[in-house]
């Protein structure tokens, strides 16, 4: 079994992140993206929300929060933990996809798909109305009963 780490990012920052659940023992990392944040000039309250969410997601685990250049920080993290696999939940953000491509030059990257609201194949229609017409029935149909951890966590 190869050594693996879990990478959490701003599009999947939950204690039930699919990659996190798949590898309960693996070290996990969240990185504040330094070059991105330097130019984005976000307000502090946004960063604090991410920090608080990351801390809770990593609670009770071998979890770490860093600031740095994302690919470089994850690379170093993998080397420190003698890991050659990175497990991460997908995102549609172009920046995420660039980082995955760069990491794939050196590591195996396993990408998890969260459950979608509806399944869609092909190009996006130009207007929401055309999208909704095709997905309405599926969108209103439940595929489960809601958050799995609901009863434990909502007390």
């Amino acid at each position: 079994m190869p050594n693996a780490i879990v990478w959490l990012h701003g599009d999947s920052l939950s204690s039930v992140d699919p990659a996190l659940l798949a590898l309960p023992e693996a070290p996990a990392i969240f990185v504040f993206d330094e070059p991105f944040l330097q130019q984005a000039r976000l307000s502090f309250k946004r960063l604090f929300f991410l920090y608080e969410s990351a801390l809770e997601a990593l609670e009770g685990r071998n979890g770490f929060v860093y600031r740095g250049e994302v690919v470089e920080t994850i690379r170093t993290f993998c080397l420190t933990h003698a890991a050659d696999e990175i497990h991460v939940t997908t995102s549609v953000a172009p920046r995420f996809n660039r980082y995955v491509q760069q990491l794939r030059r050196q590591f195996k990257v396993v990408v998890y798909q969260p459950q979608p609201l509806v399944h869609w194949r092909g190009a996006a229609p130009r207007r929401f109305s055309a999208f909704w017409r095709r997905v309405e029935t599926e969108a209103l149909r439940p595929t489960g009963s809601g958050p799995q951890a609901y009863t434990e966590q909502s007390s």
Binding site: S15, F44, F48, F49, E52
Partner: peptide, 18 residues
């Protein structure tokens, strides 16, 4: 995170986390 945000150090009332 000095240098990575702009404006005052203030929190929103909405807490992070699941």
């Amino acid at each position: 995170l000095a240098g990575l945000y702009e404006g005052p150090v203030e929190l929103a009332p909405t807490p992070g986390g699941r």
